[in-house]
C-alpha cells in the first residue's frame, strides 16, 4: 500500500526532517508512527498526500509513484487517502452534516448519493442526532468523530491520522481508537502518528519509531512494551 525507498526530505531552511527512510506497509495493516517531537512524523505524513515532495528517494502510495505524479493528478491521490487531524480542521460555519457532505460534494458526487452516504457515515461514527449541530456545540471527541466521518466518506484505501487523540482525554481517546480499529478491520490501511504510549502498548499493532529523520525501530504487533 505504501512503499518508501531511501526517502529524504530537506526543507528549504536546511532542516533534514527525513533521512534515507525505507519502509513498506501492506494493505490492511495498522501502523503507529512514534518518536520524539521533531522526529519527522508529520513530515512523513505530509509526503504521503504530496503536500510536501521528496528531496530524493521514491514514494509509492497504492502503486502510484508520488515522485513522478503530475500536479493535476494530486487531487485524485488525495481522494483515495483519508486524513484526520489533531485539531480536527472542521469548518466552523457549517453543521456536522454539511462538514461531512462537503467532502463528497468536492469530488462531484450527486446530491442523492451524498444524502444516502452521509446518513450512513453519521451512524457509523455514532453521531446520530447531532446532524444539525455546529462544531462549537460539540465536545472534542464528537468533533473528531466528524473529522473521521469526513475522512472515510469517500471510501479511502488509506487512512492517515496525525495525533488524532492529541487534544482528547484518555477515555475519549480510547473511544476514538475503537472507531479507527473498526475502520481498519473493514480493510482500510491505517497510519497513525502519536505520542500516546499507553494507547500504543495496549493496541498490539506494528510500531515504527523515528528519530532525527531515521527509522530507529520497526516492531511487529505486540513487541512495543516499553
Amino acid at each position: 500500500m505504501v512503499e518508501l525507498y531511501e526517502l529524504t526530505k530537506t526543507y528549504p531552511n536546511g532542516v533534514t526532517a527525513l533521512d534515507q527512510i525505507s519502509l513498506k506497509i501492506d494493505q490492511g495493516e495498522f501502523v503507529f508512527l512514534m518518536g520524539h517531537s521533531g522526529a519527522g512524523k508529520s513530515t512523513l505524513i505530509r509526503m504521503l498526500i504530496r503536500e510536501e515532495w521528496p528531496t530524493s528517494g521514491q514514494i509509492f502510495v497504492a502503486s502510484r509513484s508520488l515522485v513522478r505524479m503530475k500536479k493535476k493528478e494530486i487531487p485524485y491521490l488525495r481522494r483515495s487517502v483519508g486524513m484526520i487531524f489533531q485539531d480536527f480542521k472542521l469548518l466552523e460555519s457549517r453543521t456536522v452534516e454539511e462538514n461531512i457532505a462537503f467532502a463528497m460534494m468536492v469530488v462531484g458526487a450527486s446530491s442523492r448519493d451524498i444524502k444516502k452516504r452521509v446518513k450512513a457515515v453519521i451512524h457509523e461514527v455514532g453521531l446520530d442526532g447531532k446532524e444539525h449541530s455546529f462544531p462549537n456545540e460539540l465536545s472534542g471527541g464528537e468533533q473528531q468523530r466528524v473529522g473521521i466521518a469526513r475522512a472515510i466518506i469517500n471510501h479511502p484505501v488509506l487512512l492517515i491520522a496525525d495525533e488524532p487523540t492529541g487534544n482528547l482525554d484518555q477515555r475519549t481517546s480510547e473511544e476514538i481508537m475503537e472507531l479507527i480499529y473498526d475502520i481498519n478491520r473493514a480493510g482500510t490501511t491505517v497510519i497513525m502518528a502519536t505520542h500516546a504510549q499507553e494507547l500504543v502498548k495496549t493496541a498490539r499493532r506494528r510500531v515504527v519509531i523515528l528519530d532525527k529523520g531515521k527509522v530507529v525501530a520497526d516492531m511487529p504487533p505486540g513487541a512495543y512494551m516499553r
Binding site: I49, E51, I74, P75, Y76, L77, R78, R79, S80, M83, K89, L91, F102, A103, V106, V107, G108, R150, N154
Partner: peptide
Amino acid sequence: RKEIYLMKLIGARDGF
C-alpha cells in the same frame, strides 16, 4: 483560506 486548504487536502480539483 482555511476552507481552501481543506478542500485541497480532501482532493478538490483547482477548478472546483
